[in-house]
Design a protein around this nucleic acid. Sequence first.
DNA 1: GCGCGTTACTAACGCGCGTTAGTGGATGTG
DNA 2: CACATCCACTAACGCGCGTTAGTAACGCGC
Lengths: 346, 346
Amino acid sequence: METNPRQAKVTMQDVANHVGVSRTTVSFVLNGETGNGIPQETRDRVHRAVTELGYRPNAGARALASKQTKLYGLITEIVIAPYAANIVRGAEEQAAREGKTLLIASTDGSIDSDRRAIETMLEHRVEGLIYATSWHRGVRLPALTDEVPTVLVHCFDEAAKLHSVIPDEAQGGYAATMRLIGAGHDRIGFINLDPVIPAAIGRRSGYIRALEQAGIGLDEKLVINEDGEADQGYRAAAALLDGARPPTAIFCATDRMAMGAYDAIKERGFRIGDDISVVGFDNQEIIANYLRPSLTTVALPFRQMGATGVALLAKLAANRDLAPLQHIVECPLVERTSVRLPVPAS
Amino acid sequence: METNPRQAKVTMQDVANHVGVSRTTVSFVLNGETGNGIPQETRDRVHRAVTELGYRPNAGARALASKQTKLYGLITEIVIAPYAANIVRGAEEQAAREGKTLLIASTDGSIDSDRRAIETMLEHRVEGLIYATSWHRGVRLPALTDEVPTVLVHCFDEAAKLHSVIPDEAQGGYAATMRLIGAGHDRIGFINLDPVIPAAIGRRSGYIRALEQAGIGLDEKLVINEDGEADQGYRAAAALLDGARPPTAIFCATDRMAMGAYDAIKERGFRIGDDISVVGFDNQEIIANYLRPSLTTVALPFRQMGATGVALLAKLAANRDLAPLQHIVECPLVERTSVRLPVPAS
DNA sequence: GCGCGTTACTAACGCGCGTTAGTGGATGTG
DNA sequence: CACATCCACTAACGCGCGTTAGTAACGCGC
């Protein structure tokens, strides 16, 4: 359809001339809600001229005149932990639904980098800002952000002034543990993260709540804190299995640690999902799917969080004085094959 | 510093009033190359007013007046294969160096999605367009793209009209194979991808060239084509190891297949990097780093390709009639611990 | 013939900024 | 003292568009 060779920037005026009406009329046809008294025939002629000339509205000019850019800014560390990319996906989908465009920038997380990114966004007059991190933690943003509605995703404001969307770590830990209990386990090892970070705190509380609910006493010897990497999972699992009363199931707070745990379990001649059950956390497809056997794990709801963040922005724009809230999103259990079926009754 | 409570959009005129000069003067100070006859004292007063009022130039208005947006568009399937996110990083870094901002959009790869993304970019009057894919292949873009300089990254134009930046698969395959030969291996299994895709073709030709150069005959029984997933790597490795004259080293065309191969090797009681060497391809950190032992592999130079793509855009803008070229970027070998040291001499 | 309501448009302003063509005063030159 | 330079600025235009206020033509009832 478009027959516009190169760079000949067609303007609205060109369209108007081509049709033989005024620019205003063209503008009405293109944006108007059929409200203005323009007959269908004129509308058609305008539309025909638009495709014929390859006219494309100039977003900048339009923003200038209408005083709204329909732009949301998304700043993220995606580049460091690419697996959080689904935040971007969810955000884009929701933005598209609302007729907005996403302006994406990445940051390395440093204050300078954050500031530069935010500055760029503000120069482009975004109508809202989303700041997303690759791991759940507290952040403190440059004060620039009070110029525009802002939502934090997968992190929260240490000053508690900004809205945030975070995963329900406790419910995730609970779901993982319950899955193991449901399969008949009552000695469940837990390889957790550094106990001071939000993910570790939440997952642990879920673990404990599940045990309590099932009437199983908490045995601190079954809980080991590590930093999330595979070899630490290996070490911790080895320690658990070689201990006095080894567990029959292990809940790992990251899929990477589960990956290491797999090796320790296999080395000792146990079969995973049979002799010993494993549940991970994060649902890093690339690991969980391809581990042998595939890993039952808890997903961080990135896509959903991204979408929720954008949706929240719209609400904030409508009501800027909404008190800062923490929006909590459920972490679903993703069933694969590393947990044995319920025992038939012993 | 900024003391701008909320949404009070400060314009250049406000700054001018505050200083007691005309808006033109402010504009000169802010953009001028010290060329105009404005004394340092006035400049200082303007700058002071700028920070005092929290003035921030309006990118849209500036673009409208200056007729350049300083915007590059980047369209990618990042969301599907997040590990290619380094393309974004490289592109952003290069864009920053050139004083440009990246407008990023993701696509699901469908024509419709591509078209929408490109359309959005063009409405924002990007000065160049980068289209990046998560796996090396031929693509065909909507014809819209001749309105603006366009570069393909990690893919190439089936119509051969567009510039592209692609990895040197053959050199990567050669490097991997040479590494194994250098460690003393002369029976080297090769688990390749679907033989019709560019990655498979290139890596195979590199494999063969290395063998030839070392005077090792090609044994087609040692080459197996699979689809890249872990369990296929497992199956293929098992077949190789259980064959009549098993290899002592395996070159896997993806790290995921190497992951599966690890299991097959371990199951048979071999020690990786000792009895049997393995080299992967892709350098998916999350796998290569955490596999036990860590995986020596060939990296796809995403970051570099992203940067090269942006740099190319600048050249294209200066000279639109550059004949379409394929820019080939080297794939470096990333040394880890899955290849044994050279044998001391038998 | 007059007043009035529709219908189908258009003139003109302003969004925030870059930029060109000046302007008015101070300084130097013969 | 007339004249040319500089110096330090400013008025005014236009970028592409949304939008408000208006206009001109027509039909209709009385």
